Simulated scan of single mutants.
Amino acid sequence: MNVLVTGGAGFIGANLCQELASRPAVGKVIALDDLSTGSAANLAGTDVELIEGSILDPDLLESVVAKADAVVHLAARPSVPRSLADPVASHNVNATGTVYVLEACRHRHIPVVAASSSSVYGAVSVLPKHEELPTQPLSPYAASKLATESYVLAYGASFDLRVLAFRFFNVYGPLQSAGHAYAAVIPAFIDALLRGRPLRIFGDGLQTRDFTYVGTVVRVLADAVLSKVTYPSPVNLAFGTRVPLIDLAQQLEEIVGSPADIRHEEARAGDVRHSQAADGLLRGLFPDVDQVSLPRGLAETVRWFRTLPEYEALPPAQSLTV
């Protein structure tokens, strides 16, 4: 099976490409990425064909999809704050770009596994978040990801296309960058701790998140592709953990071995207060899934950060048994 990964040079995409390349049942792995947030360096040393280009180019998509037997659609314009700064750009990539991907796949009847987001639950206060809850997006990003999954499932229903839409919950791990204004919370915290800089928490720090290690995520994605799993509604890809950000900061403080200088700042617009996944549907579809614990995943992530040139000269991290 030849697999195309859109957004394949990004954080999750590059991890997935590595996972797919390790599977004997996979032939060629192709990554399509415009490198706006991804990096060719993420695929260095892997047997992956990188094609630089945008999912907003229908002609390119048609030619690239023609090489594949399955598509994993991860390309997106991420970040709630980024979508607040430019809602139209988020819509164009996440909604319109998804339609272009689906059209290319429909023409050749290529199955699609796609990434949505837990942000679609938005203002819904019920915990844990199960897939039958209503959606109440609080940001343009969340709305655009709701459009992503809605189009994917609509194409499945309308054109008998084999599809699967996952709702990701706060994925973290190696290759997730920290060096930009829209960095996710775990790389931002690790970067601050390693550099001895203040650790910024927006709000009181009691907001909770369901963190999911990228290694687990990509194994599920690869299994979904190779086993040709489909489902007519969205599926949460997380395991029901619920961690306050202030506790996350304390765990990372212990792993890094440096005290955290926590600075509370004003809560950000569009941020969800609490997030926790119901994982019953996921475990029903993937009964052999092996969840990586948060302490182990955080330790692996810190170890990866330590391999980057900008952190190599810093004192070694405190050892942690996980």
Rank of each mutant, 00 (worst) to 15 (best):
V5G: 01
T6K: 01
T6C: 05
T6L: 01
G8P: 02
A9L: 04
F11M: 14
L20F: 02
V26Q: 01
G27D: 13
L32F: 06
L32A: 04
D33N: 11
T37S: 05
G45V: 12
T46R: 06
I51M: 06
I51V: 12
G53D: 08
L61W: 01
S63C: 12
V65M: 06
A66P: 01
A68Y: 00
D69C: 08
S79N: 02
P81I: 08
S83W: 03
L84K: 03
A85E: 13
D86E: 03
V88L: 11
S90N: 06
H91V: 11
V93R: 00
T96F: 12
Y100T: 05
L102S: 00
P111D: 06
V112F: 05
S117F: 00
H130F: 09
E131L: 05
T135I: 03
Y141S: 00
T148P: 07
Y151V: 04
Y151A: 06
A154G: 12
L161F: 09
V163N: 04
L164T: 02
F169T: 04
G179M: 14
G179R: 15
A181Q: 15
Y182W: 15
Y182K: 12
A183H: 14
A183V: 15
A188I: 09
I190N: 03
L193V: 09
G196E: 13
R197E: 15
I201E: 00
I201A: 03
F202P: 03
Q207T: 08
T208H: 04
T208G: 03
D210V: 02
D210I: 00
Y213N: 14
Y213G: 14
V217R: 01
R219L: 05
V220I: 10
K228L: 08
Y231E: 07
V235S: 07
T241K: 07
T241N: 13
L245S: 04
I246V: 09
D247I: 04
L248E: 05
L248S: 05
Q251A: 14
Q251P: 08
E253T: 15
I255K: 03
G257I: 10
A260W: 05
D261K: 12
I262Q: 10
H264W: 13
E265L: 14
G270N: 07
G270R: 05
V272M: 09
H274W: 11
S275A: 07
G284N: 11
D290E: 15
S293H: 11
S293W: 10
P295W: 04
L298V: 07
T301S: 04
R303W: 13
F305A: 11
P315N: 11
P316F: 09
P316M: 09
A317R: 08
Q318M: 11
V322W: 14
